[in-house]
Design a protein around this nucleic acid. Structure first.
Length: 273
DNA sequence: CTGGTGACCTGGCTGC
DNA sequence: TGCAGCCAGGTCACCA
């Protein structure tokens, strides 16, 4: 489900509801996510409080006060977080709750269970899942020059290249398709064969696409909703993703669908080269 | 190191 | 109506 804009929207939605509040309890109904939820998560959290929350790639990181450690949350393909003072009794697929002393609950729902909830006592930046991540597309160090240098001698198709979290974080299938359309680059092009000027255009297209999607509250295709259970409205801004066979909004030619690494790619054979 | 593939898991949709 | 097969906002482990 969630790429960078959806994770960012989720983070913004939960922050006020969870920070600086005493944690009363942690309820786990199913530990079997991507990695098992640690059995001592409950004692790790009880009576502590979160002093800060931020996003790194598609991870949400919550830091406990007094350097007691951090929690890493990944939403996988179908994970959702909700924050509310009056949630109903949990139902199927609602795998865990963090209950705060003021009565609010942070609840995680994940049909496919590709998400994760992990803890660490070290600096989360050094965690094995975080330390090898590439730069933030909305932060410093991400630009055309960076992509150009990283891609020399690479034969990987450009779409796979920008979806590689070691190259740049946060770009998933939807926004890879959209950014490549905006930049006029065919998704199958070998990343090592693309010019510096095209990479300048591509890096700006990635940034613009992600920023616009965040402003729209993310993309809801099927079941994504934010922390307040509201959908995102970027779907109506999508130019190519989920539009195979429909007319290109620039030239009118039918958009072509192919599969790359078993994932849907949609592009315009006329506008992207 | 690089690139390609299968694996994890559940449910919705399509077509016979 | 039933059911097989395919598909889905991710990414890690493993192989050549």
């Amino acid at each position: 489900m969630p790429e960078l804009p959806e994770v960012e929207t989720t983070l913004r939605g939960i922050s006020n509801g969870i920070l600086h509040k005493k944690i009363k309890s942690f309820d786990c109904r199913d530990r079997s996510l991507r990695w098992p939820i640690p059995k001592n998560m409950s004692s790790f959290l009880k009576n502590e409080n979160f002093e800060s929350a931020y996003r790194r790639g598609k991870y949400i990181i919550l830091n406990l006060a007094n350097k007691k450690g951090s929690v890493l949350i990944h939403l996988g393909m179908s994970g959702k977080l909700r924050i509310s003072p009056n949630l109903k009794q949990p139902v199927k697929h609602e795998h865990w709750d963090i209950n705060f002393a003021d009565g609010w609950t942070l609840r995680y729902t994940d049909i496919r269970k590709f998400g994760a909830l992990l803890k660490t006592k070290q600096d989360p930046a050094n965690h094995v899942l975080i330390k090898n991540l590439g730069p933030e597309p909305l932060g410093n160090g991400f630009n055309g020059e960076y992509l150009f240098k990283k891609s020399r001698k690479r034969t990987l198709p450009i779409k796979n290249f920008i979806m590689d979290s070691k190259i740049v974080v946060g770009v998933g299938n939807i926004y890879a398709n959209e950014a490549l359309f905006m930049a006029g680059i065919r998704p199958t092009r070998k990343s090592g064969s693309i010019s510096r000027a095209k990479y300048d255009l591509l890096s700006r297209s990635i940034v613009m696409t992600l920023k616009e999607a965040i402003e729209a509250g993310g993309t809801t295709l099927r079941d994504y909703t934010n922390a307040k259970e509201a959908p995102g409205y970027f779907k109506k801004e999508l130019k190519v993703y989920d539009r195979a066979g429909e007319p290109c909004l620039t030239c009118g030619k039918a958009l072509k669908e192919i599969r790359q690494s078993n994932r849907q790619t949609v592009y315009c054979t006329n506008c992207q080269s």
